[in-house]
């Protein structure tokens, strides 16, 4: 059994208005960072999973993302996975 370190990021789909990202963008402009654009706020999750293989661990993480960690109606996700202690 192998252990994998997983980092999951979840954020609103591009088609969905992100009022938090919009507010932060305004704040950045107020501070003079005029070049800052398209700010989107998301969530970061860190976990470890165990599995027989990397493929199995990936499948499991993808199911977690689809069913719980993100809501596909409004959000999208990405993750990075690497075996620990390697």
């Amino acid at each position: 059994m192998k252990t994998f370190d997983v980092e999951v990021r979840v954020w609103l789909k591009p088609s969905v208005f992100d009022p938090q990202g919009h507010a932060v963008e305004q704040a950045l402009h107020t501070l003079g960072f005029d070049g800052a654009q398209n700010v989107r706020i998301g969530k970061y999750m860190h976990l470890t999973v165990t599995g027989e293989s990397e493929e199995e661990a990936r499948k499991s993480v993808e199911q977690m993302c689809e069913r719980v960690l993100s809501n596909p109606v409004m959000e999208t996700y990405a993750y990075e996975l690497k075996e620990t202690g390697v």
Binding site: V16, P19, N71, V73, M74
Partner: peptide, 17 residues
């Protein structure tokens, strides 16, 4: 109910926060 898929769609942060 939306999270349970008993109703469609989702409820997001108000547009003015």
């Amino acid at each position: 109910l939306t999270e349970s898929h008993l109703l469609p769609g989702a409820l997001l942060r108000n547009n003015h926060l």
